[in-house]
Design a protein around this nucleic acid. Structure first.
Length: 224
DNA sequence: CCATGATCATTG
DNA sequence: CAATGATCATGG
């Protein structure tokens, strides 16, 4: 049976803690969910499995996964030393209609204001079924962390607003990268002269260095 | 179509 | 070999 949404933070934290140490195969079998051999075709499978097991209810709406708690859940693939293996997708980057939106009203802020990080063994040499769930971390950005994110967000929003060329090299901790099914997908945007154009959709991503900072704040990582 | 869940795979 | 740019599946 599908778990109901958690009603408070303590319950969410407890459920997440109960998953630590189990393999993905253990969890999938608990719910009778079929496992793929690998993630080449179902890249979001791990995240969807954990959302299911924890009772997330946002259902791909642009808001935090646990709507009553305002908590977003992110699985984070880690290597043997606990370092992140991938960047973390946050949300789509608005290309129109965002003039005047401030940081605290942004979707990036709302998603990152409270996050349940669930580390998962992610090295490709470990068969998907054998990968284990690590110790979860309920996190809220410190003042310093929020300032870092905000500075990047403001820089990136300016690029978006003024239709300037964007690469993943902008931003220190937050970056903008393509976010689409393939290169043919286009969305409405404005060019540098303010003319409407069709442009490649972009998404906000957290770089690995930032995720590493978060994990460092909570866990001992790396070889002794 | 667009937003969710992300990882893949080519490149520098 | 890390980082950037590209891509895959699902659901409303």
């Amino acid at each position: 049976m599908r778990p109901t949404p958690p009603t408070n933070l303590k319950q969410l934290a407890q459920r997440a803690n109960d998953l630590a140490g189990w393999t993905l195969a253990d969890i999938a079998s608990d719910y009778g969910i079929q496992m793929p051999e690998n993630l080449k075709r179902e890249k979001g499978w791990v995240g969807q499995l954990l959302e299911y097991a924890l009772g997330a209810d946002a259902q791909s709406r642009p808001e935090p996964d646990f709507t009553q708690l305002g908590v977003e859940m992110k699985t984070i693939p880690i290597d043997q030393s606990g370092a992140p293996l991938e960047t973390t997708y946050i949300c789509v980057a608005p290309r129109t209609g965002q003039a005047g939106v401030d940081w605290h009203r942004s979707l990036v802020y709302k998603k990152l204001a409270h996050v349940l990080w669930v580390p998962i063994e992610g090295e490709r040499k470990i068969p998907l079924a054998e990968r284990r769930v690590g110790t979860p971390l309920l996190w809220q950005p410190s003042q310093e962390e929020e300032a870092m994110l905000r500075a990047d967000w403001e820089e990136l929003m300016e690029l978006l607003t003024f239709g300037q060329p964007i690469t993943a090299r902008h931003g220190e901790y937050l970056q903008l990268r393509p976010k689409a099914a393939d290169g043919s997908v286009k969305t409405k945007a404005f060019d540098i002269n303010g003319k409407p154009i069709q442009a490649q959709p972009k998404g906000f991503y957290l770089k690995k260095s930032f995720t590493q900072l978060i994990l460092n704040r909570a866990f001992i990582t790396g070889p002794i």
